[in-house]
Simulated scan of single mutants.
Amino acid sequence: MNDENYIEEFIPPENFAMVAPNIYRGGMPKKKNQPFLEKLGLKSILTLILEEYPVQNQSYLKKNNIKLFQFGVAGNKEPFVDIPEDVMVKAVLTLLDTRNHPILIHCNKGKHRTGCLVGCMRKIQGWSYTSIFDEYRRFSAPKSRSMDQQFIELFDPKPVVNSLNIKYIPSWLTL
């Protein structure tokens, strides 16, 4: 195959979607997703995985001058694992700071932990629970977790709202 006939494929990460202007969500990026991600011009990646970030991904971030925010969160599985609310507050504040945009949020599959973070952000945006849970279930299907939905419902947005730097909030966010 010669270079003239080569067509680069743009493959988004699993469960990829735009959450809001300059905020994206998806599963753990793989090598095959890198050409797609380059088109987004990412400034930051926010990961919710507990494990050390994969070396291959670290190299990609370094090469593309992308900042990594790692908020290690265990899956919200019954009965003994809970998402720490203070960690989620910090993650939402990171998302709502335009200095980090464009940003990609991910966990392993872009379903549960990512869905919790997006759900918490949606509360700050003033979305109804019906809309928040509909979005959560679309990405988490077929294994939606009632514990995740309960976390979103009980999440207190006041610590986020009280800590936002008004100078750097997205123009689409009305408080």
Results as ranks from 00 to 15, higher is better:
60 Y>K: 01
25 R>V: 02
113 R>W: 03
128 S>M: 05
70 Q>P: 05
3 D>K: 12
173 L>N: 05
14 E>R: 12
171 S>V: 11
32 K>F: 02
89 V>I: 15
170 P>G: 06
57 N>C: 06
41 G>W: 08
127 W>G: 00
111 K>R: 15
66 I>A: 07
93 L>H: 06
17 A>V: 00
38 E>M: 12
7 I>N: 07
70 Q>I: 04
32 K>H: 10
106 H>W: 01
63 K>Y: 11
77 K>S: 06
97 D>A: 06
132 I>T: 11
137 R>E: 15
28 M>V: 02
6 Y>K: 13
55 V>N: 12
57 N>E: 13
40 L>V: 04
64 N>W: 10
118 V>M: 07
127 W>K: 12
127 W>I: 00
138 R>P: 00
54 P>D: 11
106 H>I: 02
126 G>V: 10
34 Q>H: 14
24 Y>S: 07
130 T>K: 15
172 W>D: 09
174 T>S: 12
149 Q>K: 09
77 K>A: 04
73 V>Y: 01
165 N>V: 04
31 K>A: 13
144 S>I: 06
37 L>T: 07
28 M>Q: 15
99 R>K: 14
12 P>E: 06
133 F>Y: 14
150 Q>L: 12
50 L>F: 00
7 I>D: 03
20 A>Y: 11
104 L>R: 05
135 E>Q: 15
131 S>F: 02
99 R>G: 08
61 L>Q: 12
122 R>A: 07
61 L>D: 07
56 Q>E: 15
129 Y>D: 13
160 V>S: 07
160 V>L: 10
85 E>W: 04
50 L>Q: 13
101 H>D: 05
159 P>E: 07
136 Y>R: 05
140 S>Q: 02
92 V>D: 03
139 F>E: 03
45 I>C: 11
37 L>K: 04
162 N>W: 01
97 D>K: 07
44 S>C: 15
60 Y>P: 01
27 G>T: 09
120 C>L: 08
23 I>P: 04
46 L>S: 09
15 N>M: 03
153 E>L: 12
155 F>Y: 09
158 K>S: 12
170 P>Q: 06
59 S>M: 11
150 Q>F: 05
140 S>P: 02
114 T>G: 07
54 P>A: 10
115 G>C: 10
